[in-house]
Simulated assay, not measured.
Amino acid sequence: MQTHRYALVGGVGAGKTTLFNALRGRRETPRKTQALDFDLCGAMDTPGEFISHPRLYRALITSTDNVDTLVYVHPANEPECRLPPGLLDIHSGKRLVGVISKCDLADADPDAAESLMRRHGIHGEILRVAQDDPTSIERLRQVLHGRAPLEEKYP
């Protein structure tokens, strides 16, 4: 099977590291990502500061140059988006997958998060995940590794 390299990008506290661990089958407590984190299959977890601080956009662009898919992660309980329009379009030809994280929280509003993401340029399918929902994590894993079409819906 071909390896599909992807990078998780999003703001500070979006749940990227928790998702990165879940996709790798790890249940460890996430720690603040201070630098790029890679796994042996080509997946990458990026610091939230890469999105939050314009002076670090260059680091985001450079570090994601060799991935096949950019995964923009936005928490279901965050009403603001710091993603500048067009930032993730810099690499033409890359697949862009939207992920709404933290859908299991009491203050989660995944519909509002999806609307916000659409206004910021995330087009196509947006998947909703929760740390304690193995079905949602497996669905994302299948999409990222090319075993399921992005357009396929799940309950």
Rank of each mutant, 00 (worst) to 15 (best):
P149N: 05
L88D: 12
R55Y: 04
G121P: 14
G86I: 08
A43K: 10
F50C: 02
L19I: 11
S136Y: 10
T18K: 02
I51T: 08
L127D: 06
L150V: 15
L116P: 06
K16G: 13
M44G: 02
D45P: 12
P85L: 00
K102Y: 09
V143Y: 05
C81K: 00
P79W: 00
L87R: 02
T33K: 13
R118T: 02
K153M: 06
P30Y: 13
M44Q: 08
G98C: 07
T46G: 01
S63P: 05
G42H: 10
S52G: 06
P75C: 06
G124M: 13
G124Y: 11
L150P: 14
D39Y: 05
S63M: 10
L60G: 02
A148Q: 07
M44L: 07
D89S: 11
D133H: 09
P54K: 05
P54S: 09
A43I: 09
T3L: 14
C41N: 15
G48Q: 08
V99H: 14
D111V: 15
G93F: 08
N77D: 15
R26N: 11
I137M: 12
L19V: 14
S136T: 07
H53C: 04
R5N: 07
T64D: 09
V71F: 09
T46F: 00
K94F: 00
V9Q: 00
P134G: 01
V9W: 05
H53F: 09
R128L: 06
D107N: 13
I51F: 11
S101V: 12
P85W: 02
I122Q: 06
D109F: 07
A108K: 09
P84Y: 05
R95A: 05
G121Y: 12
L36A: 05
T135A: 00
V143A: 15
G86P: 03
A106V: 00
L87G: 03
G11H: 14
V73F: 07
D89F: 06
P149W: 07
A108N: 11
G93D: 10
D104Y: 13
R141Y: 04
T69D: 00
E138A: 01
E78T: 15
T135M: 01
A148Y: 01
G48D: 09
D104I: 02
L144N: 02
H145M: 03
L70K: 12
I137A: 14
P149S: 14
V12Q: 08
I126V: 15
T69S: 02
A7C: 10
D109N: 15
A59N: 10
L60F: 03
L23A: 08
R139C: 13
A130N: 05
L105T: 14
L127C: 11
I61D: 03
D68Q: 14
L88C: 05
E80H: 03
G146E: 10
T64P: 11
G13K: 01
L127S: 12
F20Y: 15
T33H: 10
H123Q: 14
R5S: 07
E151N: 04
I126N: 05
L60C: 06
L144M: 07
I61R: 06
I51Y: 11
T64Q: 12
S101C: 08
G25M: 14
